[in-house]
Design a protein around this nucleic acid. Structure first.
Length: 423
RNA sequence: GGAGAGAUGGCCGAGUGGACGAAGGCGUUCGCCUGCUAAGCGAAUGUAGGGCCAAAAGCUCUACCGAGGGUUCGAAUCCCUCUCUCUCCGCCA
């Protein structure tokens, strides 16, 4: 969420940012509601000041045994007027709020202006495409060939876009989760948390999923299933003030993630790439605003480290203004090489939200120097999406006989060098 | 699911209709004092919004005692609804 005061004072900047994102919003409507709100507050506050003056006068008169009937009746009408004004303020507040909650974040100046994913820019590439003496199979064929991935039965017991992992497939998923958590906690200094997988409406609003993207979420009568651990983890400190000397606070969480994938019918229908439920290890940072972009670089490196240790070829791209997520000011995507399709697939998305989420969720920090409180900056990134990592391992480490070599880094977790077809 | 108790500032805790943004204590910060430390003394110490100001500083007003509504000239205090926490019983992994 942007500060209304800042929107008011920098209307040109905000309008331009919206245009670069390809968003069509009429900010004049907001400015009008904001102006109305301020006029009403001014009038109501003056009346309230008068009411308070009268009130003490009446109290004082009472101790002298006087009864100020005339003042009382005047007060009655003032109070009625105040009540009416308060109601109008509430409506204006709501109008402003409704509007402001739907305005996306302003892209950082270092973000390239562009229309869609075509305009994203490659920042760096790591490793090399593996060479195959045969035609590499898609990961779903590899997985089904080894009887470790079962899409048919998942469709039976639940529906499309779900998977059952069997045997070494289940173990590989679990190994990846543990491996990622261990690296981030032991080598990168993150603290592990295991949060609830369902959250309330306030939490979804703070991180920006609501009110705009409700159709992307699964929900029960009471709660929403999290689409990413970003939601519960960022909300850990909602409505709290963090000691500035604790920043950056680095948290890592494994959770399953649930997404409706509305509007992606017919896209990535096969395999593990686009599932309604998938596992993810998520990195979250609460940062000092002065150095949050340093934190973004660090966090991105932390995520990349997993791919390096797994020996998976990847590239880093910076998203252009048109491809940027709603809450983000700057995002790096990590794209892993998938040899069967011959494409790079997003496997991590690392973003700096500045104070956008912090303002929505009232997440503050107290500066040790100035002793003042201010909104902190929040960041997060996948470290990594586990299902897609598993898919990448199957494709990149497959052998001509249909078996899959276990990457070196995972062997201690798997206690296995090779995944072979059952009997 | 049933019965009961509670929610006040960074923390503890007082406050049952008027001068209460809120006693007292703890903590924190600054100053004084002491050979050092401890103790002691003094002062400061919430958040948000509006207005004045080019802006900051500053001044000023308003709101906030879990949330929302009601009664009243006036609500932390009385009434209603809701949320959350705790205790006991039942059920449950």
């Amino acid at each position: 969420m942007l500060d209304t005061k800042i929107i008011r004072q920098n209307i040109g900047v905000v309008k331009n940012a919206l245009k670069n994102r390809g968003s069509v919003m009429d900010l004049d409507e907001l400015l009008e509601a904001d102006a109305r709100r301020r006029t009403l507050i001014q009038e109501a506050d003056e009346l309230k000041a008068r009411r308070n003056q009268f009130s003490t006068r009446i109290a004082r008169a009472r101790t002298e045994g006087l009864d100020l009937e005339k003042e009382k009746s005047e007060m009655r009408s003032i109070s009625e007027r105040i009540k009416a004004l308060d109601e109008q303020i509430r409506e204006a507040d709501e109008a402003v709020n409704r509007f402001v909650l739907e305005i996306p974040n302003i892209p950082h100046e270092s973000v390239p202006v562009g229309k869609d994913a075509q305009d994203n820019q490659i920042v760096r590439t790591w490793g090399e495409k593996p060479e195959f003496s045969f035609t590499p199979k898609d990961h779903w064929d590899v997985g089904e060939g080894l009887s470790i991935l079962d899409f048919k039965r998942a469709a039976k017991i639940t529906g499309a876009r779900f998977t059952v992992n069997w045997g070494a497939g289940a173990k590989l998923e679990r190994a990846l989760i543990n491996f990622m958590l261990d690296v981030h906690t032991q080598e990168h200094g993150y603290t592990e948390v295991l949060p609830p997988f369902m959250v309330n409406r306030e939490s979804m609003t703070a991180t920006g999923q609501l009110p705009k993207f409700e159709e992307d979420l699964f929900a029960t009568d009471d709660y929403f299933l999290i689409p990413t651990a970003e939601v519960p983890v960022t909300n850990l400190y909602r409505s709290e003030t963090l000691p500035g000397e604790d920043l950056p606070l680095k948290l890592v969480a494994y959770t399953p993630c649930f997404r409706r994938e509305a509007g992606s019918y017919g896209k990535d229908t096969r395999g593990l790439i686009r599932q309604h439920q998938f596992n993810k290890v998520e990195l979250v940072r609460f940062a000092d605003p002065a150095r949050s972009f340093t934190d973004l670089e660090e966090l991105t490196n932390d995520a990349e480290d997993i791919l390096k240790k797994l020996g998976l070829h990847y590239r880093v791209v910076v998203l252009c203004t048109g491809d940027l997520g709603f809450s983000s000011a700057k995002t790096y995507d990590l794209e892993v090489w998938m040899p069967a399709q011959g494409v790079y697939r997003e496997i991590s998305s690392c973003s700096n939200f500045l104070d956008f989420q912090a303002r929505r969720g009232q997440i503050r920090y107290r500066s040790p120097e100035s002793k003042k409180t201010d909104y902190c900056h929040t960041l997060n990134g996948s470290g990594l999406a586990v299902g897609r990592t598993l898919a990448a391992v199957l494709e990149n480490y497959q052998r001509p006989d249909g078996s899959v070599e276990v990457p070196e880094a995972l062997r201690p977790y798997m206690r296995l060098d090779l995944i072979e077809p059952i009997g």
